[in-house]
Amino acid sequence: MIRNALCAALLGAICGSVHAQSVVGTAGLLTDAAGRVLYTFDKDSTGKSACYDQCAALWPPFVAAADARATGEHTLVTRSDGSRQWAVRGKPLYYYVGDSEAGQTTGDGRGGVWHVVRDSDKAPAEAGSYRPRDY
């Protein structure tokens, strides 16, 4: 019960405070403006999230403000609750609650289905990392 409340509070804090587009950080990882690493989920389909409930408690979506506009590779997907989530080339973006500070990538490779997004020009090649074409 306490764990669920803690997860809900963390999810609310993350989702309520982040409304900017993602950026490429110094290590070549796609992050939010505060440097928190963003992930993609293999079970998502283009333009549609498959991560809800318990999944979203561990992998909070990178939400977009109501007035956010898609630009270039940064797109928006609408979640089942009507909120909008940032995506890159249609792949929804998420945080991992296990990352406690900017730049951490402890969620990369989790379950074989979660991957950091890397800029192939700035980051070393690693199996499982998602690289949008021409990103």
Rank of each mutant, 00 (worst) to 15 (best):
D134C: 09
A127N: 05
G25S: 15
A102D: 10
R110W: 04
G109N: 06
F41R: 06
T46K: 14
C55T: 12
P60S: 10
D32I: 01
P92T: 05
E126Q: 13
R84K: 15
G16S: 11
V63C: 06
C7E: 02
T40H: 03
S80Q: 09
A8T: 11
A27D: 12
A9M: 14
T78Y: 05
R118P: 05
D44I: 02
L29F: 14
D67V: 04
D108G: 03
V37K: 07
R133M: 09
R3I: 07
W114S: 00
T75A: 14
V88F: 05
L76I: 11
S45A: 08
R110C: 08
A56D: 04
T106R: 15
W59F: 05
K91G: 03
A34T: 02
R84N: 13
G90K: 02
E73M: 13
S49W: 08
M1K: 11
G98T: 10
S49Q: 10
A123I: 01
D121M: 15
L93M: 02
D42M: 11
F41I: 13
A13D: 02
W86E: 03
G107M: 01
T46R: 15
R118M: 09
V116M: 03
G35N: 07
K48N: 11
A13G: 12
N4F: 02
Q85H: 09
A27T: 03
I2P: 00
V63T: 06
R36V: 01
G28A: 07
T40D: 05
A125Y: 00
L58W: 14
A65M: 01
S17D: 08
R84I: 00
G25K: 03
S129F: 01
G103N: 13
D99V: 04
A65E: 02
D134Q: 13
H74F: 06
R118K: 12
R84V: 08
G111I: 07
A57Q: 11
T106D: 10
Q54T: 12
A20Q: 13
A34V: 00
Q21H: 03
S83L: 02
S129W: 00
G35C: 14
G72N: 13
I14D: 01
C15W: 01
W114Y: 09
R133K: 12
E126F: 06
Q85Y: 07
L6M: 14
A123D: 13
